[in-house]
Simulated scan of single mutants.
Amino acid sequence: MTVQEETQQVVGGGVGAGGSAAPDRSRLRRRGARGRPGTVRPGGAARGTLGGRWWVPWVFLAPALILFLYFKFIPMAQAISMSVQDVKPYLGNTWVGAANYSEILGSEGFRSAAWNTVVLAVGQTFGSMVLGFGLALLVEGQTRKLSFIRSAAFLPVVVPLAVVAELWRIMYHPTADGLMNQVIGLVGLGPSGFINHPDSSLASIVVTGIWRGAPYDMMIFLAGLAGIDRGLYEAATVDGASTRQRILHVTLPGLRSVFAILFVLAAVRGFRSFTEVFLLTNGGPNGSTEVVMTLIYKLGLEQNRLGVGSAGAVLLFAATLVLTVCVQLLRRRRAA
């Protein structure tokens, strides 16, 4: 007998029996609560697809969280602790307070490395964003050919950075037979030393970073372009707007949040540049490409000054954190 038939029987029986339907209705309500999943019981939690087992998602997240804790957060805490100590492995550490910070901030090498880091981050950030935005406009669409082109353009991102650095090191060969020298020779420019000359080494690394970072920015721009209302483009076309005007007054305002996100990601990526600098120049020639990350590596692992190197790492983390917070505050202020 179904619930509906039983309800009709109870209602009919209650009318004939003179008021005995109330207990039967309550019994039906209890039975309905037991028979329908997802209902809320008095004094209990909602029964969902996990049967109230709130801990199940955390079980799946636990391996990743443990790895993050062991390889990221614990080393961060140790670096902060080491930055105020004179670290002597196997001999014991000595508390020195802010002496490590004073030493590294007063170092001419650190100031030069910090300036090179800012120049590298700014160049790579704006270069990759501009090139990525241009690529996104060119390959936007749903055709099969564009899908292949997008996949091919994204390849530099998935190639290991060590392979990218070695590839560009070969391309930057300083002789006239080098690939890049042959390319610039087509426009009448003489052979350049690229990474082997102090005046062009940092710019050469910036170009390498732009080449690798632009496809990543392109994919994020493509996701942002897909969210812009196509009716705005049609209305702008009807009003006689040119392609340039549609980009300035429709596309760029629609990608404002995307630009803010990419700015933070690209800036952090630029501040943390290490592998390409280490493999291409190792900070040379004559320190012209020395950045904070390579300086920290040399202080900590080559000169065994772990306390001073940790202080530099903490300063770099603080600068990245301040940049991220400032960008987020500006976004909220503009949104308000």
Rank of each mutant, 00 (worst) to 15 (best):
L138C: 04
A152L: 14
Q124M: 04
V118Y: 09
N116Q: 08
R111E: 13
L120I: 04
R150I: 10
G132W: 08
G109A: 06
T125S: 10
R150C: 05
T143V: 10
A113V: 06
R144I: 08
L155M: 14
S147Y: 08
Q124S: 12
L135S: 02
W115D: 06
G123V: 07
A153H: 04
R144S: 13
A113T: 08
G132H: 01
S112W: 07
I149V: 15
V118Q: 09
A121I: 05
M129E: 02
A136K: 07
S151Y: 13
L120T: 03
G127V: 02
G127Y: 00
M129G: 04
I149T: 14
A114F: 04
L131C: 10
L137K: 08
R111V: 05
A136N: 06
I149R: 12
G127K: 02
L120Q: 01
R144N: 09
A153I: 13
T117F: 00
A153R: 09
F148E: 12
N116T: 06
F154D: 04
R150N: 10
K145R: 13
I149H: 05
R150F: 10
T117N: 00
S128D: 10
F110E: 00
G141K: 13
L131I: 11
G127H: 00
S151N: 13
T143G: 15
G123M: 01
F154P: 07
F110C: 03
L135C: 04
N116K: 04
G132I: 03
A121T: 11
F154C: 02
F126Y: 01
L135F: 07
R150A: 01
G141W: 08
F148I: 14
L120M: 12
L146E: 14
G134A: 08
A153V: 12
T125A: 13
F126K: 00
F133L: 13
V119L: 09
A121D: 03
L137Y: 09
S112N: 05
Q142V: 06
Q142Y: 06
A114G: 07
F154Q: 09
A136D: 10
I149F: 13
L137C: 11
S128M: 09
A136W: 07
W115P: 01
N116D: 03
T143P: 08
G132E: 04
Q124C: 12
S128N: 02
L155Y: 12
L135I: 06
L146K: 15
S128E: 08
K145D: 06
V139N: 11
V139Q: 09
G127D: 00
G109C: 03
A136C: 12
L137I: 05
G109I: 07
R144W: 11
Q142P: 03
V122L: 01
E140G: 07
S147F: 11
S151Q: 13
K145Q: 10
L135V: 13
L146Q: 15
K145W: 13
V130I: 11
A114R: 01
V139C: 09
L138M: 14
V119F: 03
S147R: 15
G127F: 06
E140P: 05
L120W: 11
E108P: 11
T143D: 15
G134P: 07
V118K: 08
V139F: 13
